[in-house]
């Protein structure tokens, strides 16, 4: 090795990493600060008095109850649909799969208001009216669940598709050679591996359902003590200028959402909710 070569090698200094990390850090931190600042601002805008007052109101109690019940039903329905759908999408190749994939994305990309409007129109068609003549759907609690389900289920389907796709099908293949039918391989081998994904899909559907507003407003109306869920309450309180109550209810929603997120973190989720470790 020549002398010059040796000198260049030892005297070479790499650029400092600090400016890069600092700029990236500042950009990233801005967003987190915004989120936290938003929450803090909400908290300063209300007091425990307002919160208690809100919780005492009969209408708000009803809307909390309806929200919790409808979100839970929506979550269960979403899982019932998302698990088989995710299974077919991840385990089978068939004609029209890409088209089906795009159709499944419609509820995610459509504006929520349009979903509400489309549901309303659907129930004005002949089959819809026939159904309505037996069970009243529009402007009832059933419509709340349907409106929530239409959007929440799409997220659950996405999550289950990713979950199953990430699980190698080889274990199921082995199960088949050991005597399983496809159904047995699904229940005994695939599903136990997908526990975390199911939890994530369920909580995502629950949280989506809690935040749903547009479709419910149009498809279910905003009748107090009937189709009023928490997001509707925020809207109704705001529209009559009762900002304190609106903020108090918002905080209740934030806490509920945060609680669900924490539960998922505790059990370790995948995808959207995956924790840092």
């Amino acid at each position: 090795m020549g002398k010059n070569q040796l000198e260049t090698k030892t005297s070479f200094k790499a650029k400092s990493d600090w400016p890069f990390l600092l700029i990236m850090g500042i950009i990233a931190a801005t967003y987190v600060i915004l989120i936290v600042a938003m929450m803090l601002a909400d908290m300063t805008f209300t007091s425990t008095g307002h919160l208690i007052e809100a919780l005492k109101s009969e209408e708000i109690q009803y809307s909390i109850k309806l929200s919790l019940i409808s979100c839970t039903i929506t979550m269960l329905l979403s899982l019932v649909v998302a698990i088989p759908m995710g299974y077919f999408m991840s385990r089978y190749e068939f004609h029209g799969k890409r088209l089906l994939d795009s159709i499944l994305d419609i509820p995610i990309i459509l504006p929520p208001l349009v979903i509400g409007l489309s549901l309303l129109i659907l129930f004005q068609t002949a089959p819809g009216r026939f159904l309505e003549s037996h069970v009243r759907i529009t402007y009832t609690v059933y419509s709340v669940v349907i409106a929530q389900f239409m959007v929440a289920c799409a997220f659950a389907v996405r999550t289950m598709n990713v979950t199953f796709s990430q699980i190698d099908s080889r274990q199921e293949d082995v199960a088949l050679t050991l005597g399983c039918s496809k159904g047995q391989a699904f229940w005994m081998v695939l599903l136990p591996q997908a526990k975390k994904g199911i939890l994530t899909a369920g909580s995502l559907a629950w949280a989506r359902a809690l935040g749903e507003f547009g479709p419910i407003l149009i498809f279910s109306g905003a009748t107090r003590m009937r189709t009023e869920v928490l997001s509707t309450t925020v809207f109704l309180e705001l529209s009559v200028g009762n900002i304190e109550a609106a903020v108090a209810v918002s905080l209740i929603m934030i806490l509920a959402g945060f609680g669900v997120l924490m539960i998922v973190r505790l059990f370790g989720g995948i995808g959207f909710f995956k924790s840092v470790d």
């Binding site: 190698d168 080889r170 274990q171 293949d173 082995v174 199960a175 399983c180 081998v189 591996q193």
Partner: peptide, 28 residues
């Protein structure tokens, strides 16, 4: 069907059932 062939299969790198213990794998 694979289940009816009565052929034992040892896949690459074992591919054990991750949701079961050793006994569960052997007795499957």
């Amino acid at each position: 069907k694979p289940a009816e062939r009565c052929i034992g299969y040892v896949p690459q790198e074992g591919t054990l059932f991750s949701s079961m213990d050793v006994r569960g794998n052997l007795s499957f």
